[in-house]
Design a binder for these strands. Structure first.
Length: 932
RNA sequence: GGGCCGUUAGCUCAGCUGGUUAGAGCGCAUGCUUGAUAAGCAUGAGGUCCCUGGUUCGAUCCCAGGAUGGCCCA
């Protein structure tokens, strides 16, 4: 030691912060190793086992579709799920989370076919195609699983549920058996997209829109004598031309043979126009475009609303039957006549209207597009060739009002590029009103909690307007509907006994068996056709709608054992799932188990770009979840997920993340401050709460209040509120408490009671804080937890071994008030123009009861206000303000070289530049050093 | 076109049942600190609460219409 006492800077005698926890997060680099660490340590499984005797709390995973990369919408949803699961785990619940994947269905089948370079799925052996599809789906599952785990998500990722598993396929078929037993299934007609060239049904996704020139024809549906009288009556008209007709417009004349109705809009105004010697009904809004150059000649005789026209009949132009006027809300007033030609066999809307009004569903067209005998004179003609003949005939009969060519965008088959048509085909349905299913589902929703609350009305409305649920698809990649076709009478049979046999068989061999087994493998003993008594059958080749498959995940995953009770406590998905999974799960739950399969439905919003616009791959604004994590790290993105109000639509983009990153850095640095100041705190040094210094006890109370608040917010899924509370808390802790502790922590002797008290409080705050933020920031809290000495951590290897306090500590409002008062006083000191912190002395005079509160803090009050000297006076009498005097002045004495407080120095001749407190500490340290 | 939801400081969001100088954090500006230092502290400037009407003594908050964005459906 060559320095003279006068030169010595004493820095080495301070207890400066020290920690291995780095300031720089390097999340993208560090996080993957942490995922592996959790895996190796089986952190999640161990915590679950630890909670084994406590109540279960199950979040049931809605399965993502195993196709394509996960985007930020997935990230938000999956991270939120994980946040709730972690909250439950830390709360001691048995929060088993079984992630799942939706793996059948057309998108994967199409992608696989594309991959194989095959255009027609009939051209490949179904079993071969299924094998390839499965391979493809498993590939995506693996990729998505990797990304989900990379997010820091806890769950049984080694045993996810998968809709392609044999056991899952068996569940699906058993569900069908249940429904069959309850007579909830039937086979009926439905308008589906059809390619007459390929002779196959098509799905929405197999359609490409291409420009097409079609005949645009306006056709008179004339009223006969009686019909005319009623019609005039509705228009409140006595006199009118003899010939009265309703004018329709169509670009598909070949569908006219199947016409059974004309749809009008209830709230639209229709006019009866006289043109030459006839009267014509069209929507007023479209009259000028319909009459075109003859508009001036058309005279409006009377008006009526669509509603007033409801139920009238007119004559079909050539089929020799009537066509009734019905109401439909899809009728638009921008093209055509406002009176829409309705052929339930040839259109989706038309079909719904047909079902609603009980109209006949005519389908006079065979699979190849040839008119059947039902089409009368047109039988044997190809529908597209018949167009011209029909128009000619209409012209000849005088029914044609106007015709011209019309170019529009029209759906074409993606394979052969021929125009597609709608054609009624036989499909399997779940009967919505059988067993009052619809109403019971609506009632079941009543008992479910919804966040946001309007979700209930939304879901109930979906059910209210729900058409019959068509569950059959004519494709290969899916679970077969185990229906039989009687060779004797051609009847379709879906028998529960057959379905049970199929379920058992699929449970062993997977659903492929349906393609490879002989039909006899599925026949119960003595099975005969219920219609004709026949004994010879074929297997039907329909698969089940994937919405039905995902709709039974609750049956496949829950209720199998105590760990996973049915129903689940929570489901959480995007708002599109009101129509999707929330709905399908509810319907199967009610139909099969008689109740909703979940207790609470939470909806998360959509992730839009920074301008609030929808992200899209095509515009290049879609962001891949993995890319985002590689760039910013999962924890920053998770913090983003907490920082937005996830119930509403949220925004995501680089600038948004830049802001969140700053908040993240704040949190990280404050955690680092706590860690770096307890580095030398041994387990035996920790002081019991009741023996802490008053300021430290107060801080612990503030921590308890914080934890209580955050836990309360977590319990109501108010993640965003919790985020705000976390940010507010750590900034308050930092501003007041950390600043106050620096001097005692740094300048007291290492084992000084004041210092150990401060450290003990910091350790308490750190534990509580890390537990509280762990659901949102698992990587960072775990990293911090690992930076705590093993001695302090004790048995709790992971931050996920810690828990929210079982009992909420009672926090007195007086304490929180006192804390706030200290913050205010501290701010006043800090804002002082006279000098900085330890250059200052403060004279305070306050009235009761504040005086007593402040007085009880002792020297901690001076520490909290970060001044060198402080005097506290008791103001007596009635004062409007509790603080009567607040005098900041320059402190007397000089700046102690070691602790920087202004004091009288030199009491110890060996250390002339030190205050007496510091001199004592240094003497002891020096003595200890020499003793070595 | 229909149903539902949103629109409050540059950003993310609070503002409960109508009366507040409309708030917080981040960012920004200024100052301090340099023993949390690619950190910390303090202060300050930012808002016609989407627009237009209406109800009311009084509206960011209620009602109607519109604009705009989103989801679902057509």
């Amino acid at each position: 030691m060559n320095q003279t006492p006068a030169e010595r800077d004493y820095r080495d005698t301070l207890n400066l912060p020290k920690t291995a926890f780095p300031m720089k997060a390097d999340l993208p680099q560090r996080e993957p190793a942490r995922v592996a660490w959790w895996q190796e340590r089986r952190t999640y499984e161990r915590r679950l086992a630890h909670n084994a005797h406590n109540p279960a709390w199950i979040l049931h995973d809605g399965p993502p579709y195993a196709n394509g990369e996960l985007h930020m919408g997935h990230f938000l949803n999956m991270v939120l799920k994980d946040v709730f699961v972690k909250i439950a785990l830390l709360d001691g619940k048995r929060a088993t989370f079984v992630p799942g994947w939706d793996m059948h269905g057309l998108p994967i089948e199409l992608e696989t076919l594309k991959h194989l370079g095959i255009k027609d799925f009939h051209a490949i052996d179904p079993l071969e195609l299924r094998a390839k599809c499965k391979e493809r789906a498993l590939y995506w599952l693996d990729r998505q699983r990797g990304v989900r785990m990379r997010m820091g998500t806890f769950g049984d990722f080694e045993h996810p549920y998968r809709t392609v598993d044999a056991s899952f396929e068996a569940t699906i078929v058993n569900a069908l058996a249940d429904l069959a037993e309850k007579h909830q299934l039937y086979k009926g007609l439905r308008s589906t997209l059809w390619c007459v060239h390929d002779e196959t049904a098509l799905a929405e996704a197999e359609i490409e829109y291409e420009p097409k020139v079609s005949p645009s024809v306006y056709v008179r549906f004339a009223a006969d004598r009686q019909q005319r009288a009623k019609l005039l009556d509705r228009f409140a008209l006595d006199m009118a031309p003899e010939r009265v007709s309703v004018l329709i417009w169509t670009t598909t004349p070949w569908t006219l043979p199947a016409n059974v109705a004309i749809a009008v809009r209830a709230d639209a105004v229709y006019g009866l126009y006289q043109l030459d010697d006839e009267a014509i009904v069209v929507a007023e809004a479209l009259a000028s475009s319909v009459f075109a150059e003859r508009s001036r000649d058309a005279v409006l005789l009377a008006r009526a609303t669509g509603e007033q026209l409801d139920g009238l009949d007119v004559q079909h132009p050539f089929a020799g039957r009537t066509s009734s006027i019905v109401l439909a809300d899809y009728v638009d007033l921008e093209t055509g006549t406002g009176a829409v030609h309705t052929a339930p066999g040839h259109g989706a809307d038309d079909f719904e209207t047909g079902v609603k009004y009980g109209l006949p569903i005519l389908n006079p067209v065979d699979a190849a597009g040839i008119f059947t005998s039902e089409a009368g004179a047109y039988a044997g003609l190809h529908i597209f060739k018949a167009n011209a003949k029909i128009v000619d005939d209409l012209r000849a009969s005088g029914a044609l009002f106007r015709a011209h060519d019309y170019e529009h965008s029209y759906p074409h088959c993606w394979r052969c590029h021929h125009p597609v048509v709608f054609r009624a085909t036989a499909q399997w349905f779940i009967a919505m009103d059988q067993n009052r299913l619809r109403q019971r589902a609506i009632d079941a929703a009543e008992a479910v909690e919804f966040t946001p609350q309007w979700g209930k009305a939304r879901l109930q409305q979906m059910l209210e307007n729900h058409p019959e649920w068509c569950i059959s698809r004519q494709r290969t990649w899916g679970t077969p509907i185990p229906a039989l076709l009687c060779k004797g009478c051609n009847e379709s049979i879906l028998d529960a006994r057959v379905a049970r046999i199929a379920a058992e068989r699929f449970a062993q061999a997977g659903a492929d068996a349906w393609w490879s087994d002989p039909v006899t493998a599925y026949l119960p003993a003595d099975f005969v056709c219920p219609t004709c008594g026949g004994t010879s059958f074929e297997k039907e080749k329909n698969i089940v709608d994937i919405w039905f498959e995902s709709g039974v995940t609750h049956l496949a995953v829950l209720g199998k054992h105590d760990g996973l009770p049915w129903p689940s406590d929570l489901v959480l998905e995007g708002g599109d799932q009101y129509r999707g999974w929330f709905r399908s799960s509810l319907l199967t739950g009610v139909a099969i188990r008689g109740a909703a399969p979940y207790k609470h439905v939470v909806k998360n919003g959509w992730v839009n770009d920074e301008q609030g616009r929808a992200m899209s791959k095509s515009r290049g604004t879609g962001i891949d979840a993995r890319d985002a994590m590689d760039k910013w790290g999962a924890d920053v993105l998770r913090l983003w997920a907490a920082s937005v109000e996830f119930i509403d639509d949220v925004r995501f983009g680089p600038t948004v993340i830049e802001h969140v990153s700053r908040v993240y850095r704040n949190i990280r640095n404050r955690v680092r401050f706590m860690l770096s100041n307890i580095d030398d705190l041994g387990a035996g040094d920790v002081i019991a709460r009741e023996h802490l210094d008053p300021l430290d006890r107060l801080a612990c109370e503030v921590v308890d209040a914080f934890v209580g608040d955050v836990k309360g917010m977590y319990d109501t899924f108010s993640i965003h509120d919790a985020y705000l509370r976390i940010v507010e808390f750590e900034s308050a802790m930092s501003g007041l408490y950390f600043d106050a502790l620096k001097d005692p922590l740094y300048s007291r002797a290492p084992g000084d009671h004041r210092r150990r008290s401060a450290q003990s409080a910091l350790w308490y705050a750190l534990q509580r804080f890390l537990t509280a933020v762990a659901p949102i920031l698992p990587f960072t809290s775990e990293e911090a937890w690992q930076a705590v000495s093993p001695q302090l951590r004790g048995e709790m290897e992971s931050v996920f071994d810690t828990s929210f306090p079982h009992h909420r500590h009672a926090v007195s409002p007086a304490s929180l008030n006192l804390w706030q008062t200290l913050r205010d006083l501290r701010a006043r000191v800090a804002a002082s123009e006279i000098g900085r912190d330890f250059e200052l002395q403060l004279h305070l005079e306050v009235a009761s009861p504040l005086f007593e509160h402040l007085h009880a803090l002792g020297d901690n009050l001076r520490e909290a206000l970060v001044v060198a000297q402080l005097t506290l006076g008791h103001a007596h009498g009635e004062a409007a303000q509790p603080i009567v005097r607040f005098d900041v002045t320059r402190a007397g004495g000089e700046k102690c070289r070691r602790c920087w407080k202004f004091r009288s120095l030199g009491s110890d001749p060996a250390h002339p530049a030190l205050c007496s407190d510091c001199a004592h500490v240094v003497r002891d340290l020096d003595a200890a050093g020499e003793a070595l």
